[in-house]
């Protein structure tokens, strides 16, 4: 499905992007704030709930809560390696 801007979107995106509807929790562990911001914006635009951590230790603590449905982890991180 293609919308006005010409990007591919999921058919359910319009519904799922509504506040209160989450398609899942994504835990993003990324130290580069520019890339992180871009990814967070994109994920939230697709209707995901995003938790963002900048360091490996903080990411590990967040991951152990078991809330996330998917984790996106940078290979090189300050503190603990991805």
């Amino acid at each position: 499905m293609t919308d006005e801007t010409g990007t591919n979107t999921h058919p359910d995106d319009a519904l799922m992007a509504l506040p209160g509807h989450s398609r899942g929790v994504v835990l993003l562990i990324e130290d580069d704030s520019a890339i992180a911001e871009e990814i967070v914006g994109e994920l939230m635009g697709h209707g995901f709930e995003v938790r963002h951590e900048e360091t490996g230790d903080a990411g590990l603590t967040s991951a152990l809560t078991g809330e996330a449905h998917v984790m996106v982890v940078d290979r090189l991180l300050p503190g603990m390696d991805g």
Binding site: G66, H69, M71, V72, D74, R75, L76
Partner: peptide, 13 residues
């Protein structure tokens, strides 16, 4: 710790 959440690894390498 027994957590099986799928992980996507991003890397410059």
């Amino acid at each position: 710790h027994g957590i099986r959440t799928p992980v996507l690894v991003l890397s410059a390498l």
